[in-house]
């Protein structure tokens, strides 16, 4: 049965949360992880939509440290007030 965008987004959010502090995840990591988790129930487009939903809702943010990642919002070390 096909997964909904919400279900995929929730699973991605948990992947990001679990990896926080250990490994920054890229969009490709999330997509591969989700496809591994749900197999035929998902495709690349739904992964794209789920990432968009996570970022548009503010639950996650894009970051750049020599490459683009998707992380939980946080204050970075370099930031001045």
């Amino acid at each position: 049965m096909a997964k909904t965008v919400e279900e995929v987004a929730e699973a991605m959010y948990n992947m990001i949360k679990d990896a926080t502090g250990l490994k920054k995840l890229k969009a490709t990591d999330l997509t591969k992880g989700i496809i591994e988790m749900f197999g035929d129930e998902v495709d690349k487009q739904i992964c794209k939509d789920a990432i968009k939903q996570l970022v548009n809702s503010g639950r996650c943010v894009y970051t750049y440290f020599g490459g683009s990642f998707i992380e939980l919002p946080h204050k970075e070390g370099a930031a001045n007030d």
Binding site: K24, F65, G66, E76
Partner: peptide, 15 residues
């Protein structure tokens, strides 16, 4: 002092 707080060590090595 700060490396472990701001960076992932495997990523630094791999870079």
């Amino acid at each position: 002092d700060n490396l472990h707080k701001t960076c992932e060590i495997p990523s630094v090595s791999a870079s």
